[in-house]
Structure formats: structure tokens, C-alpha cells
Amino acid sequence: MDQHESPSFFIQGPSPFSRLVLFAALSISLMATDSRLHYLNEIRQGFIVLLHPFQLIANIPSNAFRSASEYFISQKTLRNENSFLKEQALYQNSELQKLGALKEENDNLRKLLGTAKSSSQPVKLAEIMYMGRDPFTHRIIINLGSRDGVEAGQAVIDSMGVIGQITRTYPFSSEVTLLTDKDLAIPIQIERNSLRAIAFGHGRDNTIDLPYLPGNVDIRKGDKLVTSGIDGIYPTGLAVAEVVDIQSNPNSPFAHIVCNPIAGIENHRQVLVIGFDKRNVDLENNIESNLKAESTPLKSNSKRNSPPKSHATH
């Protein structure tokens, strides 16, 4: 309001247009640096740490609401949930006993065959802090970061199946790209006939595509897609998606296969982050360099009709 007292009729300093040109040039060069050269990751990480207290403040209302609604939960619901969980634990314990025996047997058989033991991958429990800012990219932020040993490229699952992959880590949090994001690819296998393929997120309507498969491929509606495990990131046999629609277009050599993710991608608060298999450190380095290079966007890959080698490009 002070400018009403002393209105300046002449613009002081550089004109708005020259300022706009300056700042536009600056931001365009920043965008180029960020997307192609990756010099700015450290700056971003440092800034996210500075922003962390603000983030905590911003999370207070929703956290308070949640804890309040948890406080006022009725005894009946709790009792029902408790009995359900007990029942579930009983079933799962009996399954687990079988699993222990099977694992033993499997290890023995592998020893007899002389192949390497299938190693177990460490798992960490994480909580979803919030959805990504942009509703048109499928990302979530979880509360584990590089301080907890989370690294870019690790897989994230829930109790039902794969949710996605960690694409960016900050000290206190990390960003997970969901399976349904256009930029995420995951190596899968059809449970029924062990056919291997690579699934891509569709982007728009929470579905997953299976491109690059010929029109006469042996896939039926209801087939379950599981992780193939050949990448060393995802353990073998995690549920990924279910085929819901197959269309073969006579004009295209490829079948159009639509799948729905099995994991409750938008329903859970707790997820598991799966650490890297120690044997696959080389592979991990490979993926990281792919993530850094990022010079092959998926569009060019899809034109080439061959599955891309990197599992996550973002």
C-alpha cells in the first residue's frame, strides 16, 4: 500500500521484460542441467533436509486427525479385528511351518545340484507419508530415507504384491514410483506358463500394460503376473498384476494386454522396502548408472519394439 503514497511513474532497475528473459534463461538452463547432467541432486537433498521441519508441521493436521480417529475406534471393531488377525495368524503359522520344511528341502536340493543358494533379501517396514504432489504422476513418499539404508532402485511391496520401486532418496524420506506410473517397467513372468515379459505402467487409469508380446501369445484373461526375479531387484514370485483384457488388433503385430495391479496400491499405509541381494551388487551398480544416465526415455524404447534394459527410468 505504500506505493499509493509515493507512486513511482518510472520503472526503476531493469524492465520487467528483461528480468523475465533473464529468469527464463536461468530456469531453462537449470532444467537442462537437472534433467541431463544430474549435478543438482546434492543441492536437492540438502534443501529437503532444510524443508523437513516444515514438512513435519504440514503433516501435523492429518496425523492428529488419524490418531483422533484411532482413539475413538469402537471396542467392537477392535475385537472383530483382533479375532480376524488371530485367525489369520493361525493359518499363516501353519503355512509357515510347511515353508520352513520346504526351504530346507530346497536348499538341500540346490546343494545336490550344485547351484547357488537363493539368498534372502533384507526387508524394512516403511510408512507412507503422503502422496506425490503431482496427481498426474504416480509417486508416493515414504518415511525411510538414505539414513535408513534405502537406495534408489529397491523394490517396495505390500502384503499382497509389488507396489513399485524407489526412484529418489532423501536423508529422511524417499520417493517411490508406483507400478502404474508410465515410467516404471518391471520384469514379470506369467504364473501359469512361466512366459517372461516386461510390464509397463499405463499412467492414466491405474492399469499396467504388457507391450511387445505377439498377437498369438499364450495369455488368458485372469492370468496372474508375478515377478520373474531375474533382475536381482525384486524377489521371485511376488504378485504383480492380473490380466483383465486382451485385444489383438489385426493392424498391429502386438497384442494389447491390460492388467490390473494386485497390490492395494492406494490403500495401505505400511509398505515393505526390499533391500538388494548382496550377490547382485554389480547389477545394482548397473541400474544406478542407468538411472543416472537416463538418456534413453521410454518413448524411444517403445518405438524400437524391444524391451528396455533398465528397469526404472524416471
Partner: peptide, 13 residues
């Protein structure tokens, strides 16, 4: 841009 994790300079422009 920094806070939302989008491309550096996008919102700035």
C-alpha cells in the same frame, strides 16, 4: 521445485 521433487526450474519459469 525442490520441495515437490519436480524438474529443477519448471515451476520457477
Amino acid at each position: 521445485d525442490l520441495a515437490t521433487g519436480s524438474l529443477f526450474g519448471q515451476n520457477a519459469l
